[in-house]
Each structure stands twice: as structure tokens, then as C-alpha cells.
Amino acid sequence: MKTIKLSIAAVAALILGLTSCKKEETVTPTPSAVGNGSVSVELSHKFGMMNEQTLAIGSPVVHPMKGDTLTFSKFKYFISNVKFKKADGTYWTESESYHIVDLATPGSLKLNFSDLPAGTYTQMEYTIGVDSARNVSGAQTGALSSTNDMYWDWNSGYIMLKAEGTYKDNKADKMFAFHLGGFSGADNIVTKRTMVFEGATALTVTKDQTSTVGVEVNPGLLWHSAPSVKTLNMVHMPGAAAKLMALGDGGLGFFANPMYSFQVKSVK
């Protein structure tokens, strides 16, 4: 009897302990205490081995590995499920966090997050693409609306990235169109990533101020493992080709490359 009582007490203490631990972790500073600020993540799109070329709609760029001259008429992709992690381990999570980055729309190249509690943040967690849940949940709105032309109606699912344009083939202009998607099983290209803020790029959010994170994005990594556009100029469904471009061999493609596809260059 005594042992039972003791163990009940021990379990109770343990639960209390767990509860309080958990509480401590999830406590976020109240706005009234420290105030809230904003973060603007500014994406500049580059091409080339050292990001030396600027990628813009209608301007030709040369792929450093494949030698292809590419002129983009469309370049769009999804960034979703953004969370900022504080130095104390707590998270600020954006609700309904779906963004279309569209090279043709300058406003979309700045991802603005407001009402973050002031403090030091160590990283931003985000996803390239749209999580599987929203691919199977019927009609959506906002960035996920069917009016945004980023959805396959005949084979339900979001087009996670759309790159269209022309390339030079023996002086002739030919078309390329890469629509990359796939959210389940072997075709899944949805990629969770982390952007680290440290040292010269430490991120501090200050009350009523906007901190700006400068990020260089290099879509040239789509061709890290994929062949020249002269060999493959069209992808229109989930599968091996989409995976090769998005994830690449060894995870070095555009969606997955841990070092070079999304690089934090400055924090102001």
C-alpha cells in the first residue's frame, strides 16, 4: 500500500515536473513586456557558380555547368510553413503560411513577417513547396487558390515550382517549361529547410522596427544533377525528372541544397 502511494506521488510529481517543463518551453514573451517587431526576408535571385549573374525575367543567363543560355519568362515557387526560432528555444509561427515567390512580381520577393516578439532569433524554418495536407484537402484560398495557376487539376496537386522560357540551341530559340511537383511517396519533392542566423548575420527583432534579412537564391541548382535543357526541356508531372531537378543527386538540387540554393548574405 505504502509503495503504491509512493509511486502515485512520484508519478504525480513527474507529471507536474513535465507540465512545468513544457510550459517553460512554450512560453512566449507577451507583447506588452518586450514589444513586437517585423522581419522582411528579401530574396535576390542569382545564377552562376559564384552568384555573379542576376536572374531576372527576360534577361539571358548562362548556366555555369551545362553551358545553356536560358531566358526565363516565368519563375515562380512556393515557400510555406515559416517559423522563426528564438535563442531561448521558443518559436514564432506564421499562421496560414503560404507564399508564392514570383520573379515577375517584385513585391513577392519580400516575405514580410510581422508581430514577432522582440529578441534574438537563431533560425528560420521553412518549406519549399506545399505540404501534403494542403494537397489533399480540397479547395484552398490565398496563395493556394486555383486562380494562381500553380495547381494541376487533372492530377490533383500543387505545382511547387514553375520555370518557363527559352534557350539557345544552335542559334535557334527553343522553349523550356519545367513544372515541378509531387507531395507523396517516392515522388515527394516538398523540402523542409533551415536558414541559420549567426555571427555577422545574427538576427535581432526590435520593438516597432523591421529587420531585413538578405538572401541570395540560386535556381541554377535545378540543373546541378539534371541534364542540359537541350536534353530535357519539359517536365509536366511529378516523378523522376522533377525529383532530379528539385532534390538532385545527393540532395544538391535547388530545393534541397543545404549550402548554396538559399544563402543568408546580410541581416540589417
Binding site: 494537397n135 489533399v136 480540397g138 479547395a139 487539376d153 492530377n155 490533383s156
Partner: peptide
């Protein structure tokens, strides 16, 4: 069976 939801 390409469409996975009645709404879409």
C-alpha cells in the same frame, strides 16, 4: 482517378 477531392 487523377482528382483526389470532390471540391477540386
Amino acid at each position: 482517378g487523377g482528382v483526389n477531392h470532390i471540391e477540386v
